[in-house]
């Protein structure tokens, strides 16, 4: 149970958060080619090392929080101050194919 430094709530257990994906840019939906768009949809860097990602503090402040995480050791550092984390992937609970989706604690 590693911890994530929430800028609003302090160090909290990762179980309070939902992983919302690597930080990435959303292509312009008016001009994106299928390849660009689907790369955005499906392809993450998936590096073994330091990664910039977004977490949603579901059991805490309900804010999307940017952090850097080492994906091998699970060490976490606060994200550098910089642009707000970019678009987060939707929560897994809305997968329409999942009959047991949703209805979480809150």
């Amino acid at each position: 149970m590693f911890q994530i430094p929430c800028p609003h709530c302090g160090l909290r257990n990762v179980a309070e958060f939902r992983h919302a994906g690597e930080q990435r840019r959303r292509p312009d939906p008016q001009t994106a080619t299928p390849e660009e768009w689907r790369t955005y949809l499906y392809t993450q860097a998936n590096d073994a090392g330091w990664t910039r990602e977004t977490w949603y503090h579901r059991f805490g402040c309900r804010r999307f929080v940017g952090v850097q995480r080492h994906t091998v050791t699970n060490e976490v550092r606060p994200a550098d101050t910089g642009p707000a984390p970019s678009v987060a992937s939707p929560p897994a609970g809305i997968d329409a194919g999942a009959p047991d989706a949703g209805g979480g604690a809150m």
Partner: peptide
């Protein structure tokens, strides 16, 4: 004051 999980409820 804090918000966290208590008995799995926010």
């Amino acid at each position: 004051a804090f918000r966290s999980s208590v008995a799995q409820v926010a």
